[in-house]
Design a protein around this nucleic acid. Structure first.
Length: 468
RNA sequence: GGCCGGGUGGCAGAGGGGUUAUGCAGCGGCCUGCAAAGCCGUCUACGCCGGUUCGAAUCCGACCCCGGCCUCCA
């Protein structure tokens, strides 16, 4: 039985899809005016693993992850660079896709952009005005009447009276109440804008997610996710907008990722302490290998816990992941055939921990137990057992989206700057060992070590190797 | 100030009333020409103080520290 922690109720709940076997999930993606940073990566990888697991579990998932391609920051950035907002967002969407590919993140079923849903947005705002939940102001803005929505604050646990203290009205805004928030922004000359009943303008940030999610998934769907920092006010406002406009429960389960931290501080744009995905990927000769290491780093920590990022997080992930790949390679070089007879014990342990709010660290513990068993089975030449464990391991890895690289590539065998030269030295050493010239063999090993190559001698006298 | 999280062994990081998390590192052994990898065994633990209980790292209360939200942020 799958249980998911619901931010709305503050507890783990049994998950029951609204419509039989179908699961409809919406995740807030990114605003594309800069490179993806590790905080984005954590959300994308986290929900990628969740969606993969839901599918593994047999659910028919419709996964929507939006792109915000119009807002103040995009406009400002485009102006700074002297380019159009479209060319700016196109560029960063391209970079985002490259980054996410490197992290083995599968494409969502729909990836709507705010600018493609202006009619839906306008329609929803009109509905809100009609129902008395919104009002146009003289400056061309349209605002949401927050106090009108009696359940406001139910997600974040805030009370309106407490919020008033911090609320403020910017000089150019014409709100009736400081708590009201903008649905539609009247545009200034020269800004990108769309036609609306309230004049030229653009959508506010919160409304686009309400419009896109309900348009693509219906007024009432199963799961809505995003980073913890979106819980308030973004998701709170989404609820207010959607439920006021449709009179229906918006979302059953709200899921939020813990923060990615650096030096125990939240990584964010405003603190200027963020690392981009591509900076990290560039740290290794093979960016794809680095992508999987980064992905693994995220999965070693539960999605709701804060993850304190450091260089040693990557090192930890590297050696842990290497253990998995060494076992895979060991099996592949053993000549044993994979077996279709899966190991029920591991499958069931894996499902138990993943069913408990997607506990990926526990799931990895199961995988490592399976790895140990596999190594053991290969060592004692128990072919049937090894074949079964190998196949089981592959299935479990696939459910998390790890271990899907070619083992030799991960271990760096095909990648070295001088593979041919290394191969030559390895062969020379094999020759020396055959002749029992241990001094020569050890000297060659020293040379290889200096090249960053670690040798593993096999019983038959040949050697395999990997990058240190 | 209000509202949320959290403090676990050398490190990372799950768990959560009595029984090995897991990975890395350490120690002992097997294997090896020597290594590496692998396997077997093994040491370090639950912020502080009280309480409940036969028994608490796990529940309750106070306290100390850390982080977050209350303004844009994944």
């Amino acid at each position: 039985m799958l249980h998911i922690y619901n931010s709305l109720t503050g507890q783990k709940e049994e998950f029951k899809p609204i419509d039989g076997n179908r699961v409809r999930i919406y995740v807030c993606g990114m605003t594309v005016y800069d490179y993806c940073h590790l905080g984005h990566a954590r959300v994308m990888v986290g929900f990628d693993a969740i969606v993969r697991y839901l599918r593994y579990r047999g659910y028919e998932v419709t996964y929507v992850r939006n792109i915000t391609d119009i807002d103040d920051k995009i406009i400002n950035r485009a102006n700074e660079l002297g380019v159009s907002t479209e060319s700016l967002t196109d560029r960063y969407i391209r970079y985002m896709n490259e980054d996410l590919d490197a992290l083995f993140v599968v494409k969502p079923d729909h990836e709507p952009r705010a600018t493609e849903f202006i009619p839906n947005i306008v329609e929803m705002i009109s509905e809100l005005i009609e129902r008395g939940y919104a009002y146009p102001a003289a400056n061309g803005d349209v605002y949401y009447r927050t106090r009108q929505f009696k359940q406001y604050g139910k997600l974040s646990g805030t009370r309106l009276d407490e919020l008033v203290v911090g609320a403020r009205i910017a000089p150019d805004e014409m709100k009736n109440d400081p708590l009201d928030f903008v649905l539609w922004k009247g545009s200034k000359p020269g800004e990108p804008s769309w036609n609306s009943p309230w004049g030229q303008g653009r959508p506010g940030w919160h409304i686009e997610c309400s419009a896109m999610s309900t348009s693509l998934l219906g007024s009432h769907f199963d799961i809505h996710g995003g980073g913890r920092d979106l819980l308030f006010p973004h998701h709170e406002n989404e609820i207010a907008q959607s439920e006021a406009a449709t009179d229906q429960t918006f979302v059953n389960v709200w899921m939020h990722n813990g923060y990615l931290e650096v030096n125990s501080e939240k990584m964010s744009k405003s603190l200027h302490n963020f690392l981009t995905i591509r900076e990290i990927l560039a740290q290794d000769l093979d960016p794809v290998r680095m992508g999987e290491i980064l992905r693994f780093t995220f999965l070693m920590c539960h999605y709701r816990s804060p993850l304190n990022y450091s260089d040693s997080s990557l090192k930890n992930a590297t050696v842990a992941l290497r253990r998995i790949y060494l076992a895979i390679r060991k099996f592949e070089q053993s000549g044993i055939s994979p077996s279709n007879q899966l190991n029920d014990d591991y499958l069931s342990r894996f499902q138990t921990v993943m069913d408990d709010d997607f506990n990926t660290p526990d799931a990895l513990a199961v995988i490592f137990d399976c790895v140990r068993d596999l190594n053991r089975a290969i060592d004692i030449e128990s072919g049937a057992t090894a074949g079964s464990l190998y196949q089981t391991l592959s299935i479990l890895n696939g459910a998390l989206g790890i271990g899907c690289m070619n083992a030799s590539r991960f271990l760096g065998v095909e990648l070295s700057v001088d593979s041919a030269g290394i191969r030559e030295l390895v062969l020379q050493r094999e020759e020396a060992r055959r002749n029992r010239q241990w001094e020569t063999a050890d000297e060659l090993r020293r040379q290889l070590t200096a090249l960053g190559v670690e040798l593993e001698d096999r019983p038959d006298g040949t050697s395999t190797w990997r990058k240190l």
